[in-house]
Design a binder for these strands. Structure first.
Length: 250
DNA sequence: ATCCTATCCTGTAGGC
DNA sequence: TGCCTACAGGATAGGA
């Protein structure tokens, strides 16, 4: 269940290892994820160079030259597998026998980058960069709490009148983008707030604690490469270690 | 407008 | 050991 820290870990690894690389070839499986993976994806991205890797909440954006961006989401079980040439014998190297591989890129130096997603809740789409702000997946997202740390004052205003449980409030991507089940549980525990309370009923001092713990928990988790319960892996197919630090989730 | 429920999907934990 | 069922949950459509 990749949430912001897991997605940020993937972003950092992609940024340091695929930025500047040129797509020599690409293939898609034709399977339907959250929406079909566009068959035109290989044609659009072939020969293009990766300029930047960005993130908003749980969404990742791979900017290519030529004005196109590959927008993607890991869903529940999506992962990128990458291995640089010439280390051909690594056990983490993408392997032709792997199932549920929905996109395969090969860079100009021969290194592979594959997207694997058994449960197919992920998303993979090519969007012109100048239309990203209007993209339905991104348009309604709230602020990213790492890029723009939340404040108690903003949260208390946002939650005014809300009848939903504060945990459901925190995982609503329109409020804060990137928090899911694991981190909402940890944030509220550390802030000393019962997750079942109505969001609109929390006092400013309580939202202050939520804001502080949101930033703290997410950054501590990023430092440990996220939390691995089952499917999530880093770019090297390795688990994150924040699971050791969880107080309440599961 | 807000809230809630069902749906998508596969791997796997747990019961027997 | 193996079969079966229930469950996990991010996003979202549709209903209340």
């Amino acid at each position: 269940m990749p949430e912001l820290p897991e997605v940020e870990t993937v972003r950092r690894m992609l940024a340091s290892h695929v930025t500047g690389r040129v797509v020599q070839n690409a293939r898609v499986s034709g399977a339907k994820l959250r929406g079909a993976v566009p068959r035109t994806l290989p044609l659009k991205l072939r020969g293009r160079r990766i300029l930047d890797v960005r993130r908003h909440g749980k969404y990742l954006l791979l900017d290519f030259d030529g004005g196109l961006t590959l927008l993607f989401h890991l869903g529940m079980s999506g992962r990128w597998l990458f291995y640089p040439e010439p280390d051909r014998r690594s056990p983490n190297r993408p392997d032709e026998t792997m199932k549920h591989v929905h996109a395969r890129f090969v860079f100009a130096d021969g290194s592979p980058l594959w997207f694997q997603d058994p449960r197919r809740f992920g998303l993979l789409r090519v969007v012109p960069r100048d239309r990203l702000a209007r993209d339905p997946s991104l348009a309604l997202l709230g602020p990213d709490p790492v890029a723009e740390p939340p404040t108690g004052a903003a949260l208390v205003a946002s939650a005014r009148g809300a009848k939903v449980a504060v945990k459901n409030f925190l995982i609503d991507q329109r409020r804060i983008a990137g928090v899911g089940n694991i981190y909402a549980s940890e944030i509220l525990f550390r802030a000393g707030i019962d997750p079942r309370r109505r969001a609109g009923a929390l006092a400013l001092a309580e939202w202050d604690r939520v804001a502080r713990e949101t930033v703290a928990v997410l950054n501590e988790a990023i430092a440990r490469f996220g939390t691995t319960f089952s499917a999530y892996r880093t770019l090297w197919n390795e688990p994150g270690t924040y699971g050791e630090k969880l107080f309440v989730y599961d």
